[in-house]
Simulated assay, not measured.
Amino acid sequence: MEKIINKDLSQYRRLLYSDSPSYSGIVAGDCKGDVWVDNILNPTLALVYSFAVGGYSIMGDTSDVTVYSDFLDFLRQKLFVELKSKGVDCFEFSVENKKTEDHILKLFSNESMNKEYEYSYRKSCYNKIKEINQYNIIPVDQEFIRQLLAGKYDNTEFLSERLLESWGTYEQFFAKSIAYVATFNKSIVAVIVGTARYQNVISIDIETIEEHRKKGLAFALTQYFVNDCVDRGLIAQWDCVESNIASRKTVEKAGFKFMKKKPYYWFSI
């Protein structure tokens, strides 16, 4: 497997999946992430890492058993060694193609495999905005970033890390994505960020600081975000694991429609 640096792989359709914008956007070169392929000139299998997801996706398909053998060697001899050196003790992944998934699970048949389903939802119609009086809901535009960099807010990393790890630069974020924040006094206490985009679908990352949870901020931010997506002709996609009951309740309350579920795997390395 070879790592791709700043290369658009959008012409390789077998590596792209319209229902997986978090990873397809990285493969297509629309957002930031790491990509390794079996063959730079004609890739059939790709390993993609997303900062926002915090895991890997295996994309593409091939009937060549040597590709899978080489892929396993790459993982054990290189990637797992690098992960361990960084203090990472498990490998988390999903597989976009069912036939590829069967091959990958056979490769890891000797591992103590864990599995949980990830649920995906989408929405592409307007919400009725519900205001929360004690908080300010603010779009992340160029003026907001100027204020952020000027030190107006106390916890800038809560937002900036998500934007830069997903898009590389603020300019790329403005060109491709959307974000909103909830502020309380001088603090950013909740964020909703489009962390990836493939075609006209944007993946959502949303988080609220612990002491401000259960006050409706996630729901309010989602309303603003979705309405902005509709205005721009975009579709919001919300992915969450089955065990995250709070996230599932919020997305269903916000009127998102269930689209699919797929397994997510992990094992110790």
Score class of each variant (00 low, 15 high):
Ile245Leu: 13
Tyr12Asp: 01
Cys90Gly: 06
Val67Ala: 01
Ser268Phe: 10
Asp228Gln: 14
Lys176Gly: 07
Ala218Asp: 05
Asn42Phe: 10
Tyr135His: 03
Gln11Asn: 13
Val27Gln: 03
Val226Ser: 06
Ala175His: 06
Asp34Leu: 13
Phe219Ser: 15
Thr62Cys: 10
Phe173Trp: 08
Asp38Gln: 04
Leu164Phe: 12
Asp154Tyr: 09
Leu217Lys: 03
Phe108Ser: 03
Asn6Pro: 02
Asn110Val: 08
Tyr264Met: 12
Ala220Pro: 02
Asp34His: 01
Leu221Gln: 00
Leu163Met: 07
Gly168Phe: 06
Ala52Cys: 08
Ile129His: 05
Leu149Val: 11
Ile206Leu: 14
Gly168Arg: 01
Tyr23Cys: 03
Ser177His: 07
Tyr265Trp: 09
Lys128Phe: 06
Trp238Glu: 00
Lys249His: 13
Gly151Ile: 06
Leu221Val: 00
Leu75Thr: 08
Tyr126Asn: 14
Lys98Trp: 10
Asn136Ile: 00
Tyr265Ile: 07
Tyr49Phe: 15
Tyr170Trp: 13
Ile145Val: 15
Thr208Tyr: 03
Asp34Ser: 09
Asp70Glu: 14
Tyr12Glu: 04
Cys229Leu: 05
Tyr49Gln: 11
Leu9Val: 08
Ala175Asn: 13
Asp102Asn: 13
Arg213Trp: 11
Lys99Glu: 12
Leu83Gly: 00
Cys125Trp: 11
Ile235Lys: 14
Asp64Arg: 09
Ser69Val: 10
Ile188Tyr: 01
Leu148Pro: 02
Lys257Thr: 11
Arg248Val: 05
Cys90Tyr: 13
Arg13Asp: 11
Phe80Thr: 05
Phe173Lys: 07
Tyr126Arg: 15
Cys90Thr: 13
Thr195Trp: 11
Gly194Ala: 13
Ile202Asp: 04
Lys106Gln: 12
Glu242Ala: 11
Gln199Leu: 14
Asn133Leu: 08
Ile204Phe: 04
Gln77Val: 02
Phe71Ile: 14
Ser243His: 12
Tyr198Met: 01
Leu72Glu: 12
Gly168Leu: 05
Arg232Trp: 07
Ala52Phe: 05
Trp266Lys: 12
Leu47Tyr: 03
Val37Lys: 06
Val81Asp: 03
Phe173Arg: 05
Ser187Met: 12
Leu75His: 06
Glu207Phe: 08
Glu161Val: 11
Lys123Pro: 04
Val88Gln: 10
Ile40Tyr: 05
Val140Ser: 00
Tyr49Gly: 08
Ile192Leu: 08
Ala28Ser: 14
Asp64Ala: 04
Phe258His: 13
Gly255Gln: 13
Ile235Val: 15
Ala236Ile: 04
Ser85Thr: 10
Glu96Lys: 14
Glu101Cys: 07
Ser187Lys: 15
Arg76Ala: 07
Ser160Pro: 02
Ser50Tyr: 03
Leu45Val: 03
Tyr170Gly: 00
Asn227Gly: 05
Leu72Trp: 07
Tyr117Ile: 02
Tyr119Cys: 00
Phe80Lys: 00
Asn200Cys: 09
Cys229Ala: 10
Lys249Gly: 01
Lys260His: 10
Ala46His: 03
Ser243Met: 04
